[in-house]
Simulated assay, not measured.
Amino acid sequence: MYTPAHFAASPEALKALLTQNNAANLVTMSPEGLLATLLPFVYDPSVGEHGALQAHMARNNPQWSLPVSGEALMILQGADAYISPSWYASKAEHGRVVPTWNYSTAHAYGELIIHDDAGWLATHVRRLSNQNEAGMPEPWTVDEAPERFIAGQLRAIVGVELVISRVEAKTKLSQNRAPADVDGVIAGLRARGDSASAADVERARTS
């Protein structure tokens, strides 16, 4: 990943990308070429040196059963947003401004392990559901569904776990702009209703 020094993700930003995202694209090279699937995941920091991204996919998806050539890759994406040059204070000063795009992303590389057993899958889907239901007024749990129904659902999926060997992360959040331009970006994003992107820019400025 091309990452200028001023856009390198801080340890806090990387942790947020790993723990606060809901899904990532799993990319593998197979004998049939590149394959990709968007998967909800749970980050488990206790696995290996850098942790693991644990997910599942439909059993009918051929990606899990085809041999993987080299490393597997999962692409995590944070909030992203179009940045208008009209938000920059420097536009009024000299006009030498152009549009850009702000974003946070991480590329996690590693070995892909397949889990085709009900025990691993049962623990995984419970963790995944609990993670995503945590903010709900009345969180749903796996125990609310009939046991036989859940057993049938588990037979229809296969677990995939990326044991991370390295991570490349980037937060392009207006760090290369003058303070007055950053103020304008935050105000512009908030006026557009994009509070998540505005908060990212604010965190990047103070980190």
Rank of each mutant, 00 (worst) to 15 (best):
R190Q: 14
A92L: 12
M29R: 12
H6C: 04
I83K: 00
L121E: 00
S30Q: 08
A169K: 00
R59K: 09
P31T: 04
V42Y: 01
V68K: 15
D80C: 05
V125Y: 03
G110W: 11
R190L: 14
A198K: 01
V163H: 05
T28E: 07
I186W: 08
E111K: 07
A145C: 09
H115C: 12
R190H: 11
Y82T: 06
E12K: 06
R177C: 08
A134M: 08
G135I: 10
N130S: 15
T206I: 13
L35S: 13
L66Y: 10
D117S: 01
R96Q: 15
S65V: 06
S46H: 13
L18E: 04
A106R: 04
P11N: 10
P40F: 02
A16P: 05
Q63R: 06
A134P: 08
A187T: 14
V27T: 07
H124R: 02
A13T: 08
Y109M: 04
M136K: 14
A191L: 12
D116S: 13
N130D: 15
V98W: 06
N102A: 02
G51L: 00
S86N: 13
D44Y: 07
G152D: 08
E93P: 00
A204M: 11
S84H: 11
F149I: 10
A5N: 11
D116Y: 11
L76A: 02
P31D: 04
P62F: 07
E161Y: 04
R192M: 14
I114E: 08
G110T: 11
K170I: 02
L38N: 06
V97S: 01
W140M: 12
G159R: 02
W140P: 08
A8L: 12
Y2S: 11
N132A: 00
V142T: 15
E161L: 03
R166M: 02
A204T: 10
G78P: 01
L34A: 14
N25K: 04
S195Y: 09
K172V: 10
N22C: 09
P40D: 01
P40S: 04
E147C: 06
Y103L: 06
T37E: 02
R205M: 09
L73I: 03
T141D: 13
A199V: 05
P67R: 12
V98Q: 07
E12Y: 00
E147V: 14
L34G: 06
E161W: 01
S10H: 07
I114Y: 09
W87D: 02
H6A: 07
P45T: 04
I150N: 10
S46C: 09
R177T: 07
N22G: 14
P139W: 12
